[in-house]
Design a binder for these strands. Structure first.
Lengths: 221, 221
DNA sequence: ACCTGAACACCGTTCAAGT
DNA sequence: ACCTGAACACCGTTCAAGT
């Protein structure tokens, strides 16, 4: 008589799918395997999730929320460059802790993925803020994209096993960040090239940011 | 009586699969769809290809070969920094011309993927050579990984649609390369910071490379 | 030596029927 | 209101049988 009471929930389902993803890989995330883990039959999942693609998107959304939560406090670091380094490192730690979940974050976003784009924006906000403090508003977006691209690219190649040809991968990551931040600082204030920063001196040019600058990119050939 | 003559070939099959991949996406690359396009039935494909995963790996291998072929001549550019810029740009052009094929290049490599790793090495060789000319042998590998990570990360995020929040994406890519190359040049020869390079002067310190250097990475906290 | 139809196990998804 | 079994269309893959 009593209408069936919910034996699971969307959050429960997403968590189960994520667990299976991390444990056994993307192909193992099956409506059946998820249902089994949740104590229900596969068709029931469709009461909580539109389809498998939406389930995977929900995993990505949850992970992006956690990422944003990890990133936000790091933006409060007084030294913007140090904050940027911390953000990049935290990003990599996150990816290494749950590589398969990470591998799902940047899959083709459907053209209508409003929610996901908002989450991207939220996760990217701390990077953007730190970038603005480093180079000013004019170059902030490009700088944030530079750091993000490096971090994501490095992590992605590392997880794919493209760095198996030798060398210290950890050292390469930190070296990369160091070079990146030096280049960024140089691009924001060309005078810093001639006057290397003293220990006490902040990386950020004190007041408002300089206007857009030519970065040392010579005209091609 | 006469034993069946081959009505297709491995190369033909791989090309067909690649065409479908680029046209309709990864999910559309079905043993049936590939067989249909090749004029054969699905089970026949297994005479030429171990399974679907091997078919996708063969697409990646073919693409990596083409990539290596495109990269190699660029390494001969006399100005190593300009060569590096050309390599990064060519890499991005390649990805934009065939985004879904690109998206397959860096999928989880099976632990035994000897052939693929060799191809990675071949495609990476020009970058490594240019990096060595820029910073010397000690930092060459780390520098090559820095450039590769940035380029791949940027392309990957761009193709995933993560850069849909505004700004000039092309400009961001070129800006990023500029900053990167400046940072790399600075890391290789700290004196270059105080003495900006004159037009005629080569980027590479003439003789043998300097020893390993501390890049301007201050100790945390 | 290669191709084929038939078959198997397994997907994602729908839906009418239960409670 | 949620869950279920049965069913459907579609996968990847195997294999005995054809030529």
């Amino acid at each position: 008589m009593s209408p069936a009471v919910a034996r699971t929930s969307r959050a429960h389902i997403v968590a189960a799918a994520r667990w299976i993803l991390e444990a056994d890989g993307l192909d193992a995330v099956t409506m059946q395997s998820v249902a089994l883990r949740v104590g229900v039959r596969a068709p029931s999942l469709y009461k909580h999730v539109r389809d498998r693609a939406a389930l995977l998107a929900a995993i990505a959304d949850a992970a992006l929320d956690e990422l944003a939560e990890m990133m936000t406090p790091l933006a409060r670091e007084p030294d913007a460059a140090a904050g940027m380094r911390a953000v990049a490192t935290a990003f990599r730690d996150f990816a290494q802790a749950q590589p398969r979940t990470y591998g799902i974050l940047f899959m083709d976003l459907p053209q209508d993925a409003r929610g996901s784009l908002d989450r991207f924006a939220a996760a990217a906000a701390p990077v953007l803020e730190l970038a603005e403090r480093m180079v000013g508003p004019e170059l902030a977006l490009e700088t944030a994209r530079l750091v993000t691209a490096f971090a994501h690219g490095f992590i992605s190649l590392e997880l794919a096993g493209a760095f198996r040809l030798g060398g210290d991968v950890d050292a390469a990551f930190h070296h990369g960040i160091g070079v990146l931040l030096d280049g960024i600082a140089a691009a924001s204030s060309p005078t810093a090239l001639a006057m290397p920063r003293r220990p006490g001196q902040p990386a950020r040019p004190t007041g408002r940011a300089p206007g857009p600058l030519r970065t040392g990119r010579p005209p091609r050939g």
